[in-house]
Design a protein around this nucleic acid. Structure first.
Lengths: 190, 190
DNA sequence: GAAATCCTTTGTCATATGGCAAAAAGCCAA
DNA sequence: TTGGCTTTTTGCCATATGACAAAGGATTTC
């Protein structure tokens, strides 16, 4: 709970009354590995904060391959916010990569906060824009780098993740095959 | 002028008085090919709307190669908004790829709109979030596709651009070398 | 603890792309 | 038109990555 409040306070001020209000809208949610937080074809109904665990956003490309678009780890909000806000069906999956402990807002609770807390929307906008910028900054360099560099950068950015998730997820995130990634790891360790 | 107003109206309502106010904050700006709209190391001071022409966002990677991150064409706002808003030096260049006609807001004018027009910030937030999402959707698939597919998709998305800009820009956008792109074009045309 | 399942590594070969350099084509200015 | 500049194409070769298949390892399940 405090983790979440601290996170929000990075983006704007909230007085104790407001933080209390926020915490009343929260419920706990545990996801076990491989469970979906939200699914393509369904309208997202929740916004979550990750207390523990790793999730990933993924989809199926037109060759039917599963592609990991990004990973989201502890102390971040997770939501397909564009589709949540528009109240329309998502096109991607959000899946637990490890067992997860989340705090979730329902759509109603979330809307009430928007209507009650002055400045809430500002905070949310900042968070959304920040998250999008960050994703862009992470994805963009992938295009121009060779596979080894991508993997090394991935290691730098997610040192705590790499040993907790299947190699295939990382490979599809990096845009290479699993066997290539395996060979790359072999070369690096040498 | 009307182009810009129509663009804004997609994101929220504005009454005639408000649109008049907006238009008073605008000045014309012409950029000739290769001129910079904003530069890395300098704090962005303007937000522009593209009436005519194409710009690109680019930077130099750690190998010193110039990388085109994306293209922006007619009827869109252009600004390194993150750095504009934070009022800090940018890390990327925004450059005219063709001669351009722009409408620009100064920082002061832009802020006044924010202080005068109720709902202006909402419109801006939507635009920013939309733009970021779109960029993400364009960049993301690049990672998992082969070079030919990337080029074909690029052609689909920017059919009007490809003949107006140097091949090398497109190549760096697609994350391939110029000679590879040249060969790919040869194969396709056959 | 054995069987089944999943994940990772490895082998072999084909192919796409990069690096470098030169030639060709296109463009502009005097 | 000529000469100089930029852009694009092409050639040659090295190399990284992909495709496919099989073998090892690891982990889960009963």
């Amino acid at each position: 709970m405090e983790q979440l409040i601290n996170y929000l306070l990075q983006y704007g001020n909230l007085n104790p009354q407001q933080t209390k209000l926020i915490s009343h809208k929260l419920t706990d949610l545990e996801l076990s590995k491989d469970q979906y937080f939200s699914e393509a074809g369904k309208t997202p109904q929740q916004v979550a904060f990750i207390l523990e665990g790793i999730l990933r956003v993924c989809y199926y490309n037109n060759k039917g391959e599963e592609v990991t678009k990004y990973f989201i780890d502890e102390n971040q909000l997770v939501c397909d916010y564009r589709h949540f806000e528009a109240n329309i069906a998502a096109s991607e999956y959000i899946q637990a990569v490890t067992d997860c402990k989340l705090l979730v807002f329902s759509r109603e609770g979330w809307n009430e906060l928007s209507n009650t807390i002055v400045g809430w929307d500002d905070i949310v906008n900042k968070i959304v824009q920040n998250a999008l910028s960050q994703k862009l900054e992470r994805r963009s360099p992938l295009v121009e780098q060779d596979a080894t560099t991508r993997y090394l950068n991935f290691l730098e950015k997610f040192p705590q993740i790499v040993n907790r998730i299947p190699l295939s997820y990382v490979a599809s995130y990096l845009g290479i095959t699993q066997s290539s990634l395996s060979r790359i790891r072999k070369n690096i360790s040498r």
